[in-house]
Design a protein around this nucleic acid. Structure first.
Lengths: 104, 104
DNA sequence: CGTTAGGTATGATGCAGGTCGTACCTGGGA
DNA sequence: TCCCAGGTACGACCTGCATCATACCTAACG
């Protein structure tokens, strides 16, 4: 697991938001790729999921018609303890579940 | 403190190395800018320190003749607890972000 | 005072990355 | 069966960034 790749992946707002929402989900199950409200087009979203995959942060299961992602929580907690807490922390304090404005 | 800026700053090997060494220093004092062995020229090093400064990770004190940097340890630990541990962990385990000649 | 060493400012350059349009593929309805 | 919705692949565009050369600045030291 390469810290450089991980940090580069998490430097982008959209990607950080995806990981944060996955990390904040207590169920820790899969989530449809389309269920994330990202301010980008389809092709860009595909690109972001690829970057997260190659950084080792998520795994993606293909269903032919649609696909779902899930967080590599165990690997992350083992190699980078505390990282997910940082992301969920930003979710709660900053642009948390209650979005104060529709920026972006 | 912007997580995006912080992660973008730490995505670079040279910058991550600087912060990691500062974090690993128990004395927690200033350190001369030139004391870091980075595989880049002067101008590039100046650029890296600027990025780290603007991310809020370090402060830089100018001496006219030379300058020194110190880690904003308190701010970082308060806003991003656990982050410095990740960096020092990389230093210890991997021997750190080594200077690979073909950078990246 | 002149030289030297450490930093900065500025501009150029090459490359990586974010964004999108388009074409294509797949499975599930109507 | 035909069409649509969700994803991917590919290419293009453009911005940002890491890097460097060069010129300049400041303090220390002979």
């Amino acid at each position: 697991m390469d810290l450089g790749k991980v940090f580069a992946a998490l430097a982008d707002d959209s990607r950080r938001r995806v990981v944060a929402e996955l990390a904040a989900d207590p169920g820790d199950g899969e989530r449809a790729c389309g269920s994330f409200e990202l301010p980008v087009k389809k092709a860009t979203r595909t690109h972001h999921f690829r970057v997260l995959r190659e950084a080792g942060l998520i795994v993606q299961r293909d269903h032919g018609n649609g696909s779902a992602v899930s967080l590599c929580r165990r690997d992350i907690e083992r190699h980078l303890p505390g990282l997910l807490a940082l992301l969920t922390g930003e979710l709660e304090s900053g642009g948390g579940p209650r979005r104060r404005d529709g920026v972006r």
